[in-house]
């Protein structure tokens, strides 16, 4: 056995019932008034505003970029989001539209969402996205190799992609919905972090289940323990299925209670989402105006 597989098989197993219950308990916390206002603004700053559709057009990407810069055009106190997340072919358009702003530009790469393409094609995909202006790369791991036990191959591929990224941040998508067990989630997290991931991300959003609270909690435990072991801090990004402010609050509570306050920052925690932002904005309007808002008062994406 290689050193890597020894390390991964040496990780303690996950108590599934316990993890589910812990996440469910944390999800009952109630966040109100000023804490809620603070959390909403933080969540907006953490959003990776995403559009990953076959039907994406330059026009749609430009619109989304405008929204990323000023999510609430009528209120200057509303922060901009963390990043835009698009397909590689849309990176030049987004780079142009985001010029001069602090919004990051993330691109999915490596034959997203399946990752089932030869390695050199996936590396070229990555290099092209970086060359076009992406400063964050969301890669998918080779689940086929991982599930068949070939962890070394998964590791080597992540290392290769990290190298292809250059200065760009690398987010590694584990696609936890396809990993079958919580033990696998823990192993894949450690594998990705050892291979050099700057962020570990739950899902592509293309398969169900996408991000869940217990899985995110496991990954937060992994980054916490990894920092303790190695001194390097890695970020976490749940993606897919987070649609309401209430959901986002639950995630923030779990971040605070699991990894700690150091991760309550857009540099270390992100939400991969599209419809979440509108709900955050509506809740923000509710807090500012005192009455319930509606979908007529946010943009149609």
């Amino acid at each position: 056995m290689t050193e890597l597989s020894t390390l991964l098989s040496g990780l303690p197993g996950v108590d599934r019932v316990g993890a589910d219950q812990r996440a469910a308990t944390l999800a009952t916390r109630s966040i109100k008034t000023t804490a809620k206002a603070w959390a909403i603004d933080l969540a907006i700053r953490m959003v990776d505003l995403t559009t990953l559709e076959g039907a994406d057009t330059p026009g749609k990407v430009r619109t989304l970029c405008a929204k990323a810069r000023r999510p609430e055009p009528s209120d200057a106190s509303c922060p901009s989001v963390a990043a835009i997340c698009v397909y590689p072919s849309m990176v030049p358009v987004a780079a142009e539209a985001l010029k001069g702003s602090k919004v990051h530009l993330a691109s999915v790469a490596t034959a997203f969402p399946s990752g089932q393409a030869p390695l050199d094609i996936r590396l070229d995909d990555t290099r092209a996205a970086v060359a076009a202006g992406a400063d964050e790369i969301d890669m998918v791991i080779n689940r086929g190799a991982f599930l068949s036990g070939d962890v070394q191959r998964v590791y080597d591929e992540i290392v290769a992609v990290k190298e292809a990224c250059g200065k760009a941040h690398l987010k590694v998508i584990l696609e936890t919905g396809e990993l079958a067990t919580y033990d696998n989630v823990r192993r894949a997290s450690w594998l990705a972090m050892h291979a050099g991931a700057d962020f570990i991300k739950t899902s592509t959003g293309k398969i169900s289940p996408a991000a869940t609270l217990p899985v995110t909690m496991l990954m937060l435990e992994a980054v916490r323990d990894f920092r303790e072991a190695t001194g390097r801090q890695v970020g976490v990004k749940p993606a897919g299925g987070i649609r309401t402010t209430k959901d986002a609050m639950k995630y923030l509570v779990v971040v605070n209670e699991t990894a700690g306050e150091d991760w309550l920052d857009p540099d270390w925690f992100r939400f991969g989402a599209s419809s979440l932002l509108n709900d955050l904005l509506m809740q923000r309007q509710k807090l500012t105006t005192g009455h319930y808002s509606g979908p007529d008062y946010v943009t149609v994406d």
């Binding site: 005192g290 009455h291 319930y292 808002s293 509606g294 008062y297």
Partner: peptide, 9 residues
């Protein structure tokens, strides 16, 4: 009052 002020009504 909540119904009357609700922006989605």
């Amino acid at each position: 009052p909540h119904l009357a002020s609700h922006a989605d009504v």
